[in-house]
Design a binder for these strands. Structure first.
Lengths: 352, 352
DNA sequence: ACGCACTCCGTAAACGTTTACGACTGTAGG
DNA sequence: CCTACAGTCGTAAACGTTTACGGAGTGCGT
């Protein structure tokens, strides 16, 4: 099957009519439409996307940019696949297709995005891993490509985003730990160019202040959000003169390294040190003691991302009157064994 | 920047010359080319992909089809992201781009692929999750779209594939366990429409036979390759009259459920029951006792996939004279604690 | 008989590129 | 001076669609 012309020829109809029939335009006879659809089905005809999008200036494809560096692979695990499902359930309503655009690890994400945008291979984009100052946001705004970012940014100008509620996570983690009698609570944070780390840390400080606990900079451990980072974090914690009784991890993968280093020194997580993590409860269950952690439904997040995005695409805006608002995505705590103990303090009588 | 026409106009050159200059065609003056490239860079001009691919009938894009069903998400973890890196390192040499095509969970993979192929959005495809009889292979062969499959299939006709060496895994697992004195070795297998399971099981039988151990069908546990499947597998194992002393898991994620069920009954993995798994050592380290498992470099696998694919694309065949061969990809064993004990048997003196 | 509205369909022009072809130089060889 | 040729470049035709426009036919009211 070469193209619409062969199909028209076969049916003794003009290509214009065939096109109209296939695209559901009103001015075509019922019977003619039936014949066209039948023939198309039989011959397996599907419109060539290049021709179509050349003509109408849109591709009906939404791009999800992801990073495929080794480090990103380690960390992302099933995050993107998870949101993909949700995204597709939204896009399917509008016959939009989703493709994932993996930025090569040796290419600058900004350059990569520029290339993809300029080639006009997608109508809209979802970007993630937002940096504190992210030039991609400028790029997309300037090019007038609708987009939504997962993660806020400090780049100037308003733009659509959905961000995970790190503030809530840090606050609730601190609250939970303080309620169990902890006063010295350590926290891990990534390098500060990722906006996430900044927000996370700020609300940790606020929560401490709320409980009248002084902020101790030595309890902020700056390591990579990886297994190795967790190992190193534990190492640094053990070196502190006055050891913390609890630690908040920004990423649950770190727990594996953390546990290992702790056990090497005979410190038992869940008994000698409380641990709370973030993201992906399934993986948290691999651990022993199981990790208390904050998680979310990736599917639901995908749905929200899709709706927010389409609310900013002129052609679909009408379908999502409420969808334009930025969302701080709530996380739910899945309690595990890693912080299931209480500390006896001066202010608080032991409950065990 | 609208298009090549504006660029030509700006330079007082015909669009033909501009196109030739940008595409490195020989018949264009050095100075002219310099000017064109400079102007394109400055104005941020990049050729519209639709126009280009419409004209030349190729898109310079390779598609990697993945499945985004919830189950697939659970299982795939970072497999695709991992191979993506390797693929891109190959494709980058030829200025080819890779996109991932996630098949929606509610769409038939065959139909989805048909749509994507017919739209001519990609020049070649990588498919995975090959079924024992997979219509996608017919489809791609018939449409003359170059492709490579990760996983063999029994579909008729030769086609390029790379398969993981499940035969070797099953054999070496059995060998290793037998060497430690095990005689009753259970194995898990997925439903039989996935070709993988069939191959896996066959070589398990062969390996047993080689050691003179009778095949016992009750030791083949057919469960889903998931955490829940692992739980159920353990449950079934515990019900057997004559309990096995070892079990081979086809997917390491099952280990978490297996461990849990075992411990509920006071059976200690790594002491009372040997466990060997497959795929993804990082995750295996989450477990306690750590899981012995067979793993591979996803990056290297990606490179091999890329080369095999391009060896079957006419335009690039010349670069990969050796690349046409199908590969049975070897796995390496990463020993853990889960099978680090020996069994005293009649034929074998205890070594502890 | 005429005009009008309505339904259906064909025609042809776009969309942005690439590329075959030929035209125009200037130069060298006869 | 004529021819051949290499180096440049412009022209225009494709590629496969969609869609604005208009035409043909029909039915209906006047």
């Amino acid at each position: 099957m070469k193209g619409i012309r062969q199909l028209a020829e076969q049916l003794n109809i003009s290509i214009g009519t065939v096109s109209r029939a296939l695209n559901g335009k009103p001015d075509v006879n019922q019977e003619t439409r039936r014949r066209v659809l039948a023939a198309a089905e039989e011959l397996g005809y599907v419109a060539n996307q290049s021709g179509r999008s050349l003509r109408q200036g849109e591709t009906k494809v939404i791009g999800l940019m992801i990073e495929s560096s080794m480090e990103a692979v380690e960390n992302a695990d099933n995050f993107f696949l998870g949101v993909t499902s949700g995204l597709q359930s939204v896009f399917a309503c509008h016959k939009l297709d989703l493709i994932m655009l993996p930025c090569p690890s040796d290419e600058d994400p900004h350059e990569y995005l520029k290339r993809m945008v300029a080639r006009r291979i997608v109508d809209a984009m979802i970007i993630s891993n937002t940096q504190r100052f992210d030039r991609r946001i400028d790029l997309l705004s300037r090019a007038k490509i609708p987009f939504v970012a997962v993660g806020r940014s400090l780049s100037p100008g308003n733009f659509p985003w959905i961000d995970l509620d790190f503030e809530g996570v840090a606050e609730r983690a601190v609250d939970r730990l303080v309620a169990r009698g902890h006063r010295r609570i350590a926290i891990t944070a990534p390098s500060s160019d990722v906006n996430l780390g900044h927000v996370f840390l700020e609300s940790y400080r606020r929560a401490l202040a709320r409980h009248g606990i002084a902020f101790d900079p030595s309890l902020v451990i700056r390591v990579k959000s990886s297994e190795q980072g967790g190992y190193q974090a534990a190492h640094e914690l053990l070196l502190l003169e006055e050891r913390p009784t609890a630690v908040i991890l920004i990423y649950e993968l770190m727990a594996i390294g953390l546990y290992r280093r702790l056990m090497e020194s005979g410190v038992m997580p869940g008994r000698d040190l409380a641990v709370i993590g973030f993201r992906d409860a399934p993986r948290a269950r691999f651990l022993n003691p199981s990790l208390s952690c904050f998680r979310m439904s990736l599917y639901d997040l995908g749905v929200a991302l899709g709706q927010t995005l389409l609310a900013h695409v002129p052609a679909y805006r009408a379908f999502y009157p409420e969808g334009g608002r930025n969302i701080v995505w709530p996380l739910e705590l899945v309690p595990g064994e890693s912080d299931a103990f209480e500390i006896a303090t001066a202010k608080r009588s032991s409950s065990g």
